[in-house]
Simulated assay, not measured.
Amino acid sequence: MPHPYPYADYLADSIARQLTQLADHLSQLPANQVPPVLGRVLNPEDGVLGRFTGLLVAGSVFAKDRAERGALPPEVWLALGRAANELHDIGLDLDEHIESFTAGTPPVAKPAAASPLVVRRHR
């Protein structure tokens, strides 16, 4: 007889709950403690982002097999694959900036000047 609450369901619920706790905790940390935590979360290989990307890759492989057998619409497989690819690309983009988050980065001698976040085109 199968267990009424499968272990995979327990893991998924537990991870979701822990991510919520991490987000809540992160919002309450002093500003100097946030960057190293973000660096660990955003690490494209060993961080939450990298591991979640790996989970979507595994889901895509499963969905491909099911789609080839006619048990899932091909769009499900394509959507999972696209999501995994997008997250992988986001991880690569963020990887260029991981050093900005690492602890022990020497303080900047002078404060960085504020920069506009939106660049407007001049006509």
Rank of each mutant, 00 (worst) to 15 (best):
E99K: 03
A79S: 13
R121G: 14
Q18Y: 09
L87N: 05
A71G: 01
T102Q: 15
G59F: 03
L117H: 06
L22T: 15
P36V: 05
A58G: 09
E96V: 09
V48W: 06
A23K: 05
D93K: 11
P107S: 11
L22C: 13
D93V: 04
L78A: 15
S115P: 00
Q33F: 03
G50A: 07
R17N: 14
L19P: 00
L11F: 04
T20S: 14
R40N: 07
L19S: 09
R51D: 02
A109R: 12
R123S: 11
A58R: 13
N32G: 08
A114M: 11
F52W: 10
P35C: 06
P2W: 00
A83S: 07
Q18W: 09
P6A: 15
L92E: 14
A58F: 01
A23G: 02
T105K: 15
H25T: 15
R40K: 12
P73W: 01
L11P: 01
Y5P: 00
A8Q: 10
P111N: 11
R123C: 05
E99M: 02
D9P: 00
D65M: 07
P73Y: 05
Q33D: 10
K64P: 00
D24W: 00
P44Q: 08
L80N: 03
R120M: 06
V118Q: 11
A8M: 06
T102H: 11
D65Y: 03
D9R: 15
E99G: 05
A67F: 08
L87T: 01
V57N: 06
Q21E: 12
A12D: 14
F52H: 05
R120F: 06
R66E: 06
A113F: 04
F62H: 04
L92T: 06
R82K: 12
P111W: 01
V37I: 14
D24F: 01
F101Q: 07
V48F: 10
L56V: 08
L38V: 01
S27F: 00
S27G: 13
L22K: 07
A16Q: 13
L56M: 14
R51A: 03
R69W: 01
H122D: 08
L80K: 02
N85P: 00
L42P: 02
D95W: 01
H25K: 08
L94W: 02
A58L: 07
T20C: 01
H88A: 15
D9I: 04
A71W: 13
P44S: 09
I15T: 09
R120D: 04
L80A: 02
A83K: 07
H25N: 10
